[in-house]
Amino acid sequence: MLAPSTAAAQGGSVLLEADVDGRPVGVGNLVLKPSEAAKVSITVRNGTDTVQRIKTVRISGTALALTFFTYDTTVPFDVPPRSAETRSFPLEPTDLGSQALGLLPVTIEVVDVQRETIASVETTGDVKGSLWSVYGAFGLGVLVLTALSWAGALLALARRRLPANRWQRAMRFLPAGIGTGLVAVISLSVLRLVAPSPTAEIPFIVGAAAAAFVLGYVTPHPGERPPSSLDADTVRIPR
């Protein structure tokens, strides 16, 4: 769910409104194309009794508690008490294609001279990046590690080398389940179906982890390895 296009800072008295290429942030997805410059306009409404000194406008994209791109634009201006100020500036995300792709939560915030966030607004960004971007490579890395985790667990099951304790067997499968949940979240983001967010991430990751944990718990007891027919202690030499 998208955040409203107006956000409050500390005290709830400083509000930020933003639009990109004339479209209000928070209405639909914010399309970001590395090959195209965008015109960003922000309005800061100061409802306090003190001057708000803006220094920087920051636009960032995050997923899974990780920041994949950040653009800081220096736009110094003051907002007098009980008034509003509007500023516009161009955004040229030329290197965005190598940083992210797909649907990502995007935050626009105004930062003061002490580098403190005064107010912010959140939306979902549709980044037209490359599969080989940092975010894409991160997803591929998680996919490879998850595949290796499943292969290791299932191979140990086939060779009857899992721990005898059920809880230990469940923990052996748990990393593969967590990885499966992460792969699902990243895949839905890259395919532009669902943007990563706590409400989307937690059910996928926890659900996949729980399923893998239960699978490991109910796997059959490995038991003792059957004795080899060539075991020296069991071979009888006819007389």
Rank of each mutant, 00 (worst) to 15 (best):
P24N: 07
S88Q: 15
P105R: 12
G26A: 06
P105K: 09
R159K: 14
A212D: 11
Y217N: 12
K39F: 03
I54T: 06
V127P: 00
R172W: 13
Q99N: 15
T199G: 04
A84L: 01
W132S: 06
R166W: 01
G47V: 12
V25F: 00
A176Y: 04
A158D: 09
G61L: 03
N46S: 05
E224P: 13
V20Q: 04
L148T: 11
P80A: 09
P76H: 00
R115F: 01
K33H: 09
T107N: 07
L182K: 10
L148P: 07
A137S: 14
G152H: 06
R160Q: 10
L154Y: 13
L15A: 09
A119I: 06
P93M: 02
L32P: 12
A232S: 13
V79I: 07
Q168C: 02
S229L: 06
S187K: 12
F68K: 07
V235Q: 08
F138Y: 15
I108F: 00
I237E: 05
T73E: 05
G216I: 12
T180C: 00
D126Q: 15
V142L: 05
F213A: 14
A232R: 15
P203V: 03
G12S: 10
A212I: 11
A208S: 14
P227V: 09
V44M: 08
D233M: 03
A209K: 14
I186Y: 00
L104N: 12
Y71W: 01
V113A: 09
R166H: 07
R236C: 00
L188G: 05
A184C: 04
P227F: 05
A153K: 11
A65Y: 10
L101P: 04
A164M: 10
G179V: 07
S120M: 02
E36M: 12
E85N: 12
L131D: 10
Q114I: 10
A119V: 02
T234A: 05
I42Q: 07
